[in-house]
């Protein structure tokens, strides 16, 4: 089957690729573009490990078609740090040990970034509900919530 030609912007860079009509954006990112930071934990939008930001909106990239990225802006975990300088969320996740195995971490970071963009000073409850679309099986979420609280406070002070 002939592929569809797609022009999009990923982490600020212009990117072009061919994809099949039924291919997910997650598969395009991982298998065609080598951006394996987004993970497939379920493929059904239940775990959030594939979270990305599409035109400013948090989405599961396993529920978006590669073809749908045409003309849009995609932000992935690979674009979160500014060169060598980690985003405050990334830094605080390491400092608070908010990851054990780390497979859910890229999705959590993207979701937390989106949450703080909409609500820079969330309560614990707002953080917990804001991140309820992302599954973590290792941490019990305690250290994740604390890392987000700490990062939010750093970002507000900046």
């Amino acid at each position: 089957m002939a592929g569809l030609a797609v022009s999009t912007t990923i982490n600020g860079d212009s990117v072009e690729y061919l994809c099949q009509p039924d291919e997910t954006l997650l598969d395009v990112l991982r298998d065609r573009l080598g951006l394996t930071g987004a993970k497939e934990g379920c493929g059904t939008g239940d775990c959030g490990a594939c979270s990305i930001i599409l035109d400013g909106r948090l989405v599961c990239s396993c529920l978006v078609l590669g073809a749908e990225a045409e003309g849009r802006r995609v932000e992935t975990i690979e674009g979160m740090a500014d060169g060598d300088v980690l985003h405050p969320l990334q830094q605080k996740f390491i400092e608070h040990a908010a990851l054990q195995c780390g497979i859910c971490t890229p999705g959590f970071l993207i979701a937390a970034k989106d949450l703080l963009a909409r609500n820079p000073d969330p309560t614990e409850e707002e953080i917990r509900f804001g991140l309820a679309g992302n599954l973590c099986r290792c941490t019990g979420y305690d250290k994740i919530v604390r890392a987000v609280q700490d990062a939010a406070s750093v970002m507000r002070a900046a």
Binding site: N134, Y141, V145
Partner: peptide, 13 residues
């Protein structure tokens, strides 16, 4: 699947 086999999410704990 994770929708019907529901493991705890952040807001559950």
């Amino acid at each position: 699947g994770f929708l019907d086999y529901r493991i705890p999410v952040c807001s559950d704990l």
